[in-house]
Design a binder for these strands. Structure first.
Lengths: 128, 128
DNA sequence: TTAATATGTAACTATTTGGTTACATATTAA
DNA sequence: TTAATATGTAACCAAATAGTTACATATTAA
């Protein structure tokens, strides 16, 4: 009933799914304007492997690349990260998250729950 | 030189990397306290497939699961999302991101750049 | 021009991931 | 108890991913 593939943020989440790509972001954030070669030196995998990771980060717009002669300068772009935050973090989720943390602590200490947030009932319907 | 596998946030990013798992989070955020079966109904894949996705989200602590009899109630937890935001979003990256956006717009309109943020030079050293 | 440099792509392979069917366990209803 | 329900795991197969080597292109230095 859903369409798992047409998520406009898919590129972003896919880019962030690999440890090397996240470390590339860490490095570029700390070294704005660095070259591909500089990035590749930081990793044990080959330069080509790193190049492919950079391409994926660029497609997700997590990296901005500025060409200068035979060099390419790399910059981190935080906008997609902001989009992740905005997708699931609103007043409601923040409120509920903190309530849940309190609730979990209560469970762990074997006390009675006095949460006033009850589960929604409209999702417990049977189909057919 | 790096250690791509020992990233404590790896579970979180891996969990968010699949479209179905992100839609599960969307659904649970909108239907707190829903059961596994309710979630599974939303997708074309089998209940078992959804169950495996839920397990991955639970491991990443993006879902809190409360067992009640033969039912399990699901709640969204926004804390890992906050951790992503905190990892790369600080005053520096925010400042730079906005500067870059302005810079890209300048490039697209074929104007001269007047950015005062120069690339760092300490990352353009040659090795050996 | 010629050589070295910086970077990128294509084709291929090993590993990981996502989905399934079959089976198992625990709870509630009759 | 017996049947239906809600859920989860194991084993397996197809698809996607991550890495490699080989090759290609463009820029700068000699």
């Amino acid at each position: 009933m859903n369409h798992p593939t047409d998520d406009p943020m898919d590129n972003i989440f896919h880019a962030l799914a690999h440890g090397v790509r996240r470390e590339i972001l860490d490095y570029v954030l700390a070294h704005p304007g660095c070259f591909s070669g500089n990035i590749a030196e930081q990793f044990e995998i080959s330069r080509i492997g790193v190049s492919k990771h950079i391409k994926i980060l660029h497609k997700a717009e997590l990296l901005v690349i500025e060409k200068s002669g035979r060099n390419s300068l790399h910059y981190f772009n935080a906008v997609p990260i902001q989009m992740i935050y905005d997708r699931w973090t609103n007043e409601y989720s923040q409120f509920f998250a903190s309530k849940l943390n309190a609730f979990k602590l209560q469970l762990e200490s074997n006390q009675e729950s006095n949460m006033d947030s009850e589960p929604t009932e409209d999702c417990h319907e049977k189909t057919a």
